[in-house]
Design a protein around this nucleic acid. Sequence first.
DNA 1: CAAAATTATTTTAGGCCTAAAATAAATCAG
DNA 2: CTGATTTATTTTAGGCCTAAAATAATTTTG
Lengths: 170, 170
Amino acid sequence: MDERAPPLDRETSAALRPADHKTELRLWLRLLTCATLIESGIRKRLRETFDVTLPRFDLMAQLDKTTGGLTLGELSQRMMVSNGNVTSIVEALVGQGLVDRRPSPQDRRAQVVSLTAEGRRFFRQMAAAHEVWIAETFAGLTPGESEQLMALLGKAKLSARSTFGEGSRP
Amino acid sequence: MDERAPPLDRETSAALRPADHKTELRLWLRLLTCATLIESGIRKRLRETFDVTLPRFDLMAQLDKTTGGLTLGELSQRMMVSNGNVTSIVEALVGQGLVDRRPSPQDRRAQVVSLTAEGRRFFRQMAAAHEVWIAETFAGLTPGESEQLMALLGKAKLSARSTFGEGSRP
DNA sequence: CAAAATTATTTTAGGCCTAAAATAAATCAG
DNA sequence: CTGATTTATTTTAGGCCTAAAATAATTTTG
């Protein structure tokens, strides 16, 4: 009996070899590069123009979207950062007088955070500039392309969520 | 003479009002959410499976792509992080015996960093798992969609680079 | 009701990250 | 060649971030 294995055809050997996923890898790197590039740019402009950090801006943005404030836990979930992290950012913003923090009337464990009048004024000013910067960032895409990108990222988000589980932010 | 201004038609009033860029804003938030979601997932798996941090994995990935190593400056540029940051990550990896650092023969200011044999072995093992995780992450997209997303992110990258200036990584 | 489990937050230890200042070596200009 | 500039890295000060442990209040369960 012939002991040698028969030669494998192309399909079979490809199926046995661990599939390579270079395409997905490149896609991930490109997505990450885009995000990092924009994030650094925005961070720099916020610092230079308003002397504010990006996490503080983000936190204020969450508060500006609501009426009546948010608890630390809600902030943590929406910002997709850890609980303890929110504690310290809020601490800093309270120190700057931009944010208010008081115990929840319903739940004595919880703290409700909201923008002060000054905080809201300041945030709105920053938000206006921020909006223009972001528009500039994507100016190289036609409206149709932006729409497509939005849709594809929506699919990617669902796909990623299903592999890594819920990571908050609706 | 009639003192009242004539009523503005829809086009004109839209042109006078500062344009709103809610679409681009939503696009940016979605891009950021995707990146954060995937990054957190990968970070967690790297920690649980290999007890390694993402920045260390990234640094080793850069080294694995080259022969002959990279200087700290090259690493900093390719990883899109600050110089001082690279110094400390390399420091940690040298301590773990995964990476080698020695003065450049050409330039006495520069240090050349490369993977040790153990580092390369370990990285290759991680890279195999990482590749599968990323493939899983994008499994919800058809090949055609991945290709489209890749192209659109390419345009977005160019556009962002042109507004924020070069942020390295080709 | 009281013990157990859950939930909201804070604390702790440690790593990542940046900007800006400080070193030190290489290159340039006269 | 020498002073001035540029380049590669390190150091410093401070902020962000996480995981895990600790508190404290609420809810669930037996």
